[in-house]
Design a protein around this nucleic acid. Structure first.
Length: 285
DNA sequence: ATTAATGTTCAGAA
DNA sequence: TTTCTGAACATTAA
């Protein structure tokens, strides 16, 4: 499920061990599953990355970025089930990429593990990365956008607010799970058209995004019942225990303690909300 | 045993 | 132009 908090956790988990190391080699481990989507060819990536030093480990939206001293960079997109790992993976069957790094003279492996195999790895120079990670493709990071910017961007679409929050070009980093959590905390009905949000909605949304995403990062992300997501040391996240509505259909709302959490489908994906706390109308609280 | 559902993204259709 | 649909894939729950 890597959304912003999970990807940030991956970055924090590997940064200290990876920063300043030299790349000895890059390889696709023998794995009987379908080939990893990479660009350009593995051969060219190997040629341009061998011997280079990793000078930055960062995140852009839901992507992990490894910047090399040449200015080239790996842009890793975990999509549904991808993980960056320094320790043992859940299984060896789905290891898709291995970086062998030289850390104070000794080799050390960094892995990209991905069960469903929808993740991608791109190797781009600085200019191409600036283009592909720029405003034409991705909106501002969800943790950095200001209330005014929220307002301007939400005004531009009639889609339901829950659907709009998943549009990475509008704002980058929020996924299906955190969209429900954020709207519940902000007390906004998920089907409210984005362009109809009032100033107080925007203020509440901005605060809820900050609150939910920052707390989720502190908890090292959410590990769902399928157990796929783990942090870089292969441990579970803990934020799932703090979920207010996600996957809690039928449970009592933690805010009002009265209504039952409801599940609806929007844009073919589950949305969870409290019909009591999150009203479409113009009323407050 | 089929079918539906799962966190994401993108191409192509409406 | 904007919005919607389905597909990519692997695995589990119903």
């Amino acid at each position: 499920m890597p959304e912003l908090p999970e990807v940030e956790t991956m970055v924090r988990g590997i940064r200290d061990k990876v920063l300043g190391t030299q790349i000895i080699s890059v390889a696709k481990p023998p794995c009987r599953c379908r080939p990893l989507s990479i660009e350009p060819s593995l051969r060219e990536i190997q040629r341009r990355s061998r011997g280079r030093t990793i000078v930055e480990v960062s995140r852009r939206a839901k992507r992990v970025i490894l910047v090399l001293d040449s200015g080239d960079r790996f842009v890793i997109e975990p999509r549904m089930t991808g993980l960056m790992l320094l320790e043992d993976a859940p299984d060896s069957e789905h290891l898709r990429m291995e970086w062998t790094l030289k850390q104070s003279g000794r080799p050390r492996s960094l892995w990209f593990w991905d069960r469903r195999g929808l993740g991608t790895i791109r190797f781009w120079d600085a200019a191409l990365a600036a283009e592909r990670l720029g405003p034409r493709f991705l909106g501002p990071d969800a943790l950095e956008i200001s209330p005014d910017e929220w307002s301007a961007r939400l005004q531009r679409t009639q889609r339901a607010i829950k659907v709009a929050l998943l549009d990475q070009k509008l704002v980058a980093g929020i996924g299906n799970l955190y969209a429900s959590e954020i709207l519940h905390l902000a007390r906004i009905h998920p089907e409210l058209p984005s362009s109809r949000l009032k100033r107080r909605h925007i203020a509440a949304l901005h605060d809820a995004v900050q609150d939910v995403l920052r707390t989720a990062i502190e908890y090292e992300g959410s590990t769902l019942s399928d157990g796929t997501y783990r942090n870089a040391l292969n441990r579970n996240g803990q934020y799932q225990n703090a979920h207010r509505v996600y996957a809690r259909e039928g449970e009592t709302c933690p805010t009002c303690q009265r209504a039952m959490i409801r599940r609806i489908v929007q844009a073919q994906r589950s949305t969870f909300y409290c019909p009591q706390c999150q009203r479409r109308g113009t009323r407050r609280t």
